[in-house]
Design a protein around this nucleic acid. Structure first.
Lengths: 133, 133
DNA sequence: ATTTGACCTGGAGTGCACTCCAGGTCGTAC
DNA sequence: GTACGACCTGGAGTGCACTCCAGGTCAAAT
């Protein structure tokens, strides 16, 4: 199957402009063109875009995604390097999750403070809100 | 206790420039000044900076942090709104964690693919790396 | 007395990841 | 045959969150 840029945008969740931008910066190999010169994305293209958006979601900078994309063009010889990139990213994602978990705990603590302020709203002494703010 | 801007930067993990920037955009109330006109941060200032960096870590945009900072200046009457902001952020952090967890699974899957490629590196048929790339 | 180093101000510059625009080409629908 | 909508290109513009700079002040050390 092949898809127009609008359809590829819809399926990938990226904007049309972003698809062209990714192509320009070599994140995405130039897709096929139809007789009128319009882009015709393949299923492979869409799969790759799907993976790219996952990497993006993990916070991988475009620079690293470009490196991965470039390695991919060099075939199986680059598999080790590609794996290393992914292992590295895996580690950074796990760290990020732990960090966010810590923030969640702090938010819960703060929210609980506010809930207590609400329950005691009639008897609160002045300045108390500053302690919990 | 009071701290020079260099000390405040060290303790908050923010740069000196960022401290001045946060003050400019009203994330941080202007700290006290010493006799020479240099900033003298209080423990309260430092605590607030600590919380701000937590909010930042959760991905809260500066715009929202400014809103929270501004509400804080309006005392206890704004506690409900502040709590709502935190509850909202809590939800978005939980979502983000789930999203990252999903990405982690995909990375593990890919990494495992590469590990298999490595184990079969002598017997791999051409094109196999494309399937897993 | 002068040098040094930390600090000050207002404003300009940076890097990232898009996003938008003007002006043009195609193929189908009326 | 022309109006329309989707697409094309190269390039400029945007929003965010800083980061850097020039030119100046001040207090302590030499």
């Amino acid at each position: 199957m092949s898809y127009s840029i609008a359809e590829a945008a819809r399926r990938s969740g990226l904007s049309i402009d972003t698809l062209r931008y990714y192509e320009r910066i070599k994140l995405l190999d130039p897709p096929a063109r139809d007789t009128a010169g319009r882009r015709a994305y393949s299923d492979d293209d869409l799969n790759w875009l799907g993976f790219l958006t996952k990497l993006r979601t993990t916070g991988m900078p475009i620079k690293s995604m470009r490196e991965y994309a470039s390695l991919r063009r060099h075939g199986v010889a680059s598999a080790g390097r590609r794996k290393a990139l992914l292992v590295d990213q895996r580690r950074s994602v796990a760290e990020r999750i732990a960090e966010l978990q810590g923030c969640l705990d702090i938010l819960d603590y703060k929210i609980e403070n506010y809930a207590q302020v609400e329950r005691n709203v009639l008897g609160v002494e002045p300045g108390m809100e500053e302690i919990s703010a």
